[in-house]
Amino acid sequence: MYLIQLLSFSCLFLDIKFLLFFRAFEYFGVYFAIIISVGKKIFSFLLVLFIIIISFAHAFYILLSPKSKFSLDQYNTNSNDDPNNPWNLAPSYSQVDNNGNINSNPLMMIQIPDGNTNMFIDIKTSLFAIYLFLIGDSSALSNWTYTENPSISVLIVLFSLLVVVYLMNLLIGLLNIAIEEDNNRVSYLMQKAEILAEIELFYLLPHQKRWHTWFPEVIHYYADVDKARVEIKRLIKEGEWDTKEFTELRKNLFEVLQIEYNSIDNEAILEQLKIDNEVILEKLKSHEKLLKENNNELEKLKSHDEKLDKLDKLDKLDKLEELEKLLKEIRAK
């Protein structure tokens, strides 16, 4: 039995593995790039959603799990008081006479319950029941009357508003935003580069990695003339073109693309800018020196003020002492 289950899952994974080989082709690779990148972006949101679903499953498990012992193989008449017992939730059949009166005797027939009669017996099945409720199947909660169990109604309303309405619509919005960001050829090319790197690292033999036909020293790139001209003009305008590398190649590009560009003028402008910057820096340094000198003079003035204050205080003390002497002399007379 377990071998058949393992065989089914292994076939599923092999089919998915075979499907992943199509990532290298642009016709299919664009969609694989969207699927993988979007999955990475919303992984944290899915984790939060999963935790919320587990929380609701735990709440329903505590509320609806049987409180008395039972057996699905044997009916126990002593457990009739437990409303969550699967035997009490299973459909029962009574006898009705010709006048439409229901027989007052106890139930005549009862359907034998199974593990799906009350899916909240176990935490694992309760989690699966909440997942079914999320996708629209509420049969796991239909065995209880909502008027007699208002707590079930409250949990259902909370789950439907929070998860089904709010979070699921929020998930759809996040998916749309992520798809718009990654629905381009750049995502596919990045994925293709990762595939090539994976092949070079793990699927090639050492002598294959040294083949010059596969790994040449010089690589030729194809570029559209109009697009290349626009890109070079943009780089020149933004000041990112003037470098001392590949000067001959740059000159050849200008000739082929018919772009008028005088690198000497630009170099002269850059040199003039450097000179101006140096002059400005020298002026700033001189201003800093002046500020330091002014600060030193201010400190000296502050010290002089402090000395003058001390002298004034001493003069006042001397005068007070003289007055005290005079008062003493007057009192003595």
Rank of each mutant, 00 (worst) to 15 (best):
S8Q: 14
F13D: 06
V30Y: 02
S37H: 05
K41R: 01
F45L: 05
L47F: 13
V48F: 06
L49T: 00
F60R: 06
S71A: 05
S71Y: 09
Y75R: 11
D82W: 08
N85R: 10
P86D: 00
S92I: 08
N101L: 13
I102H: 05
N105S: 03
I112S: 09
M119N: 02
D122G: 04
D122S: 15
K124R: 09
S126Q: 08
Y131A: 08
G136L: 03
N143H: 08
T145M: 11
Y146S: 14
N149T: 11
L155G: 05
V157D: 05
V157P: 04
S160I: 10
N169A: 01
L175K: 00
D182E: 15
S187Y: 02
A197P: 03
Q208M: 06
K209Y: 09
R210I: 07
F215A: 03
F215K: 14
F215G: 01
F215T: 03
P216E: 04
I232M: 00
W241Q: 03
T243Y: 15
T243W: 10
E248V: 12
K251Q: 13
V279Q: 09
V279F: 10
K292M: 10
K302I: 06
K302G: 04
K313P: 01
K319Y: 01
K319P: 09
L320D: 04
L323C: 10
K325R: 12
L327F: 10
R331A: 09
A332M: 12
A332Q: 03
